[in-house]
Design a protein around this nucleic acid. Structure first.
Lengths: 149, 149
DNA sequence: TATTGTTATACTCTATAACTATA
DNA sequence: TATAGTTATAGAGTATAACAATA
């Protein structure tokens, strides 16, 4: 009988908040990816939909900044969302270089529905949280994020 | 004046624990990566060092499982660590197919020192935590991780 | 000059398949 | 037959550089 995974000593990695954040994020992300895939999009595409839903008319570059990615990556992403008839590029009114992004009515329904599905899948993790812990975690994570942004 | 990042409505993404975990993990990871880079290794190589330090004699496949990656990725990683004279492959005593991994004395010193540097950098984030919150966060994250493993 | 969208490109990380030598 | 290490390869995600159109 060789040493199996349960016997591994993680004492060094276990002292690091960053390592546990990473492992927990991967756990959530697997769930999230599966939910998105069922609906025919990727996590990245959902992020774009979620931003444009509540911020209609943003340019591609503005959305790229909002989700912390490069504007060059937006081109193929918006192409896909247009092909899915969830989003559309409209000519910007005052700047002929840029597009204003809007969800189609179907895109709005799709995004709301997917959001609810993701929330439902996330609730799976709440069985290991005590009352109030989810809110406290959200609050603590936001303070960490705000520290570097 | 166009809409800047501070004006973006993140209300949908902000309801998702997974999204905040991801953003917070990225914040920690940038710090972690910089600390590793200063010492000439990558975050992935540090993970391997940290496991082998406390679990000397593991095979490559066992280490791969411990850090949740594929054994094929271990080959180049261990090659690099051997070239840095931090780790060595020794023939396994009872199985000529496999190697037993050990840190060199220099590898042990290096790993302890890097661990301390990472911890020191992580303390930067503790300025936004209240007393006891770090421990509570570590505990909560572990419960989430254990749920899926 | 600077910025937007675009294209081409590269780099990292990760995963898969197939091979060999051993078990 | 199954497993350990290895190699080649492919995919996703992300970043950089350069270009045309426009500001």
């Amino acid at each position: 009988m060789t040493q199996n995974q349960n016997d591994i000593d993680y004492s060094m990695l276990n002292t690091l908040v960053g390592y546990r954040l990473r492992r927990a994020q991967i756990a959530y992300f697997e769930n999230f990816t599966a939910t998105c895939t069922e609906q025919g999009v990727t996590p990245g595409l959902f992020g774009i939909l979620a931003i444009v839903l509540n911020n209609p008319g943003l340019t591609q570059t503005a959305v790229a900044q909002a989700i912390h990615t490069d504007r060059s990556a937006m081109v193929a992403a918006v192409d896909k969302l247009e092909k899915l008839k969830l989003m559309e590029r409209r000519p910007s009114e005052n700047d002929r270089r840029s597009y204003a992004l809007y969800l189609t009515p179907e895109g709005e329904r799709f995004t709301h529905a997917l959001h609810q599905k993701v929330l439902a899948h996330e609730s799976h993790f709440e069985q290991v949280m005590k009352p109030g812990e989810k809110e406290q975690m959200l609050d603590m994570l936001m303070r960490i994020i705000d520290l570097v942004n």
